[in-house]
Amino acid sequence: MIYKLIMLFQADVTWLNVFRYITFRTILATLTALCISFLFGPWVISRLRALQIGQYIREEGPASHKPKAGTPTMGGCLIIPAILASSLAWSDPANLLVWVVVFVLVSFGAIGFADDYLKTVRKNNRGLSPSGKFSLQVCAALITAIVLYVYPGLDTRLSIPFLKNITPDLGLFYIPFAVFVIVGASNAVNLTDGLDGLAIGPTAIAFTAYVVFAYLAGHFKIAAYLQIPYVGAAGEISVICGAAVGAGLGFLWFNAYPAEIFMGDVGSLSLGAGLGAAALVTKQEIVLVLVGGLFVFEALSVIFQVGYFKLTGGHRIFRMAPIHHHFELKGWPEPKVIVRFWIISIILALMSISTLKLR
Score class of each variant (00 low, 15 high):
Ile2Pro: 08
Lys4Cys: 00
Phe9Val: 09
Asp12Trp: 09
Asp12Glu: 15
Trp15Ala: 07
Arg20Phe: 06
Arg25Ser: 01
Leu28Gln: 09
Ala29Met: 05
Ala29Asn: 02
Thr30Cys: 13
Cys35Arg: 06
Cys35Leu: 11
Phe40Trp: 08
Pro42Arg: 12
Pro42Met: 15
Trp43Gln: 07
Trp43Ser: 07
Ala50Lys: 15
Ile57Cys: 06
Glu60Gly: 08
Pro62Asn: 03
Pro62Cys: 00
Pro67Ala: 00
Ala69Glu: 13
Pro72Val: 07
Pro72Ser: 08
Thr73Asn: 00
Gly75Val: 02
Cys77Gln: 00
Ala82Cys: 08
Trp90Glu: 06
Ser91Phe: 10
Leu97Asn: 06
Trp99Lys: 09
Val100Lys: 00
Val101Asn: 12
Val102Met: 14
Leu105Asp: 05
Phe108Lys: 04
Gly109Trp: 12
Gly109Val: 09
Ala110Val: 13
Ala114Met: 14
Ala114Glu: 05
Asp115Val: 05
Asp115Met: 00
Thr120Val: 15
Thr120Asn: 14
Arg122Lys: 15
Ser129Pro: 04
Pro130Gly: 13
Pro130Phe: 09
Ser131Asp: 08
Gly132Tyr: 04
Ala140Val: 05
Ala140Ile: 01
Ala141His: 11
Ala141Trp: 07
Thr144Phe: 05
Val147Trp: 14
Val147Ile: 15
Leu148Ser: 06
Asp155Glu: 04
Arg157Ser: 15
Ser159Glu: 15
Ile160His: 02
Thr167His: 12
Pro168Gln: 13
Pro168Ser: 02
Phe173Glu: 02
Ile175Leu: 13
Val181Gln: 10
Gly184Arg: 10
Asn187Ile: 07
Ala188Glu: 04
Leu191Thr: 01
Thr192Asp: 04
Asp193Gly: 03
Asp193Glu: 00
Leu198Thr: 02
Ile200Glu: 03
Ile200Ala: 08
Gly201Arg: 05
Pro202His: 13
Thr203Ile: 11
Ala209Gly: 12
Ala209Ile: 13
Val211Gly: 13
Val211Asp: 12
Val212Asn: 01
Tyr215Gln: 12
Ala217Gly: 05
Gly218His: 04
Phe220Gly: 02
Ile222Arg: 02
Ala223Leu: 10
Ala224Gln: 13
Ala224Asp: 10
Ile228Lys: 12
Val231Asn: 12
Val231Tyr: 10
Ile240Asp: 09
Cys241Gln: 01
Cys241Val: 06
Gly242Lys: 03
Gly246Pro: 11
Gly248Glu: 00
Gly248Lys: 01
Leu249Phe: 12
Phe254Lys: 06
Gly264Gln: 02
Leu269Pro: 10
Leu269Ala: 11
Leu269Cys: 09
Leu271Val: 09
Leu271Tyr: 11
Ala273Thr: 04
Leu275Lys: 01
Ala277Asn: 01
Ala279Phe: 15
Leu280Trp: 10
Lys283Met: 07
Glu285Tyr: 06
Leu288Gln: 01
Val289Cys: 08
Val289Gly: 00
Val289His: 00
Glu298Asn: 06
Ile303Arg: 09
Phe304Asp: 08
Val306Arg: 13
Phe309Asn: 11
Lys310Trp: 02
Lys310Ile: 08
Thr312Asn: 09
Thr312Phe: 02
Gly313Asp: 08
His315Ala: 06
Ile317Arg: 04
His324Ser: 05
His325Trp: 14
Leu329Asp: 11
Glu334Trp: 00
Pro335Ile: 07
Ile338Asp: 00
Val339Ala: 06
Ser345Pro: 03
Ile346Val: 15
Ile346Tyr: 01
Met351Asn: 04
Met351Gln: 10
Ser352Tyr: 03
Leu356Arg: 04
Leu358Ala: 10
